[in-house]
Simulated assay, not measured.
Amino acid sequence: MLALLHTSPVHVPVFDALRHQHHPGLELRHVVLPELLDRARRDGAAAVAGDVLAVLRGAAADGARAVLCTCSTLGGVAEACAGDAGVPVLRVDRPMAAAAVALGPRVVVLATLRSTLGPTVALVEEEAGRAGRPVAVRTHVLDEAWRAFEGGDAGRCARLVAGAADAIPAADADVIVLAQASMAPAGPLTTTSVPVLSGPRRGLAAGARVALRQ
Rank of each mutant, 00 (worst) to 15 (best):
P134V: 14
G132N: 11
A170G: 14
D174W: 03
G163M: 10
A170M: 00
A131K: 08
W146S: 06
T112A: 14
V161F: 08
L178A: 00
V141Q: 03
A164Q: 04
V175F: 09
D166W: 10
A162I: 10
F149C: 03
L142H: 06
A164T: 03
A165V: 07
A162L: 12
E125Y: 07
C157F: 04
L123D: 12
A179Q: 04
L160A: 09
P119V: 06
R130H: 04
V161E: 08
V141P: 06
A131E: 13
T112C: 06
R159S: 12
A136P: 06
L123T: 14
V137D: 15
A131F: 07
A136E: 15
V175T: 01
D174T: 08
A179M: 01
Q180T: 12
R114T: 14
P119L: 08
T120L: 09
D153H: 06
E144S: 12
D166A: 10
P169G: 04
E127F: 01
E126A: 15
A148M: 07
G152H: 07
A122G: 15
W146A: 08
V175G: 07
L113A: 13
A131Y: 02
H140K: 05
R130G: 01
A145T: 10
G132S: 11
D174S: 01
E150S: 11
L123S: 03
V175R: 05
T112M: 13
L178W: 01
E125G: 06
T139K: 00
D143Q: 11
P134C: 12
V177S: 04
P134F: 13
E127W: 00
A162Y: 08
V135D: 15
Q180V: 09
A158N: 10
R114F: 02
A145R: 07
L142S: 12
R147P: 03
E127C: 13
I176C: 04
G152R: 02
A111H: 05
I176M: 01
D153F: 05
H140Q: 02
V124H: 07
T112S: 12
A154L: 11
E144F: 02
A164V: 09
L160M: 14
L142C: 11
D166Q: 12
V141D: 11
P119W: 05
V141R: 13
L123E: 13
V137N: 14
Q180M: 09
G118T: 12
R138W: 01
D143A: 14
T112G: 10
R114Y: 03
D166I: 06
I176L: 02
D166H: 11
G155W: 01
A136S: 15
A122Y: 02
R159A: 15
G151D: 02
G132K: 11
E144A: 15
V121Q: 05
R130T: 03
L178R: 00
V177H: 04
S115K: 05
R147M: 04
G155Y: 03
G155T: 05
S115P: 05
R147D: 13
V124C: 04
G118V: 04
C157N: 12
A111Y: 04
V141N: 00
R114S: 13
A170E: 15
E126F: 05
R138T: 15
V124Y: 02
R114D: 15
D172Q: 13
L123F: 01
E125Q: 14
A128M: 09
V135P: 13
A154T: 12
E144R: 10
V177C: 08
S115D: 11
F149H: 10
T120H: 07
